[in-house]
Simulated assay, not measured.
Amino acid sequence: MPVLVLTLGDVLNERAAERGRPRLISIARLAIWTLILPPIGIAMLQSAANRSYAMSADVTSETI
């Protein structure tokens, strides 16, 4: 499971970089929390995903 969580975190960071935004989540912190307490790592990932989708909605509304 840690590999999946880290991969998803990296995908979210790449998505932000494509839009010229800063990283959404620190991969090092995500790795530590995912290994120590997986629910906290997953919550961090969910928070970053929510911010990513909010950024996507902002970009979409600006282009319309």
Results as ranks from 00 to 15, higher is better:
14 E>I: 05
30 L>R: 03
1 M>G: 11
32 I>M: 01
41 G>T: 02
18 E>L: 09
11 V>K: 10
57 A>H: 09
62 E>F: 08
19 R>E: 07
12 L>P: 01
33 W>Q: 02
61 S>I: 15
50 N>Y: 02
14 E>C: 05
7 T>I: 03
43 A>Q: 10
41 G>M: 14
61 S>M: 15
6 L>R: 10
63 T>H: 11
16 A>H: 07
41 G>S: 03
17 A>G: 10
41 G>R: 15
12 L>I: 08
22 P>F: 09
40 I>E: 00
57 A>G: 09
21 R>G: 01
44 M>F: 04
45 L>K: 07
16 A>L: 06
20 G>V: 04
5 V>T: 14
56 S>A: 15
47 S>F: 07
47 S>Q: 11
23 R>Y: 01
9 G>M: 04
27 I>H: 03
54 A>V: 00
1 M>K: 15
7 T>S: 11
46 Q>M: 06
51 R>T: 02
52 S>F: 03
45 L>M: 12
4 L>W: 04
14 E>P: 02
63 T>M: 13
46 Q>Y: 12
33 W>A: 11
44 M>L: 15
58 D>T: 08
20 G>L: 03
61 S>T: 05
10 D>F: 14
14 E>Y: 04
44 M>W: 11
36 I>M: 06
34 T>W: 13
64 I>R: 05
37 L>P: 00
28 A>I: 05
61 S>E: 03
15 R>C: 04
12 L>W: 01
26 S>A: 08
44 M>E: 07
49 A>M: 09
15 R>V: 06
23 R>F: 00
8 L>G: 07
55 M>D: 02
64 I>L: 04
39 P>W: 12
58 D>C: 03
13 N>M: 06
20 G>M: 04
14 E>H: 11
34 T>L: 02
37 L>F: 12
25 I>G: 08
27 I>R: 02
38 P>R: 07
56 S>F: 05
45 L>A: 12
19 R>S: 05
26 S>T: 02
39 P>M: 13
27 I>G: 07
38 P>C: 09
36 I>P: 00
33 W>K: 01
40 I>P: 00
64 I>F: 01
49 A>E: 04
8 L>W: 12
19 R>L: 06
5 V>L: 14
42 I>Q: 14
59 V>P: 00
64 I>C: 14
